[in-house]
Amino acid sequence: MTTENKILTSELKDQATKIMAQYDQPRSAVLPILHLVQNTYGCITCEAETEIAALLQMPIVDMKEIVTFYTLFRSRPCAKVEFNVCRTLSCMLRGGEEIIDHLKEKLGIQPGEQTSDGKFGLHLVECLGACETAPTAQINESYVGGLTKEKIDQIISGKTK
């Protein structure tokens, strides 16, 4: 009996299978497959968790454990532009808190929230490993360092167009 997979389409399933083949035990592929699914759909839904758990023959509760343990996995779709601003020591020393305050004011949201039009999201993260360009943020996939209030404004207006 085959059930129609909503998340793991045949194409994704092929990719997932290739990933699994790289590991000597299939369960090791759970993080890469979660990344694959999140990159495709924007977040990890219960549906996705169920299908991936079935593919890897893992108890479903373990999937929930993994998705809630690792900070990079989202259960809800992210905004178009995600500001992940570092709040650890070197960035704090070089003005990170002012950047965070500026973003809160400019976007009118608190960390963990999205603007109501879904365009911008703000998250506070721990050290990104780019302390030499502090204050640094990871904006969607890219690291952007040497942040200033002006740079933030430019990015916001640039992305709004």
Partner: peptide, 16 residues
């Protein structure tokens, strides 16, 4: 049973 989240926000629970 599983343990969700981490640190002092860790919680016991079942899959929703």
């Amino acid at each position: 049973f599983g343990i969700f989240n981490r640190g002092d926000h860790s919680e016991i629970g079942l899959y929703p």
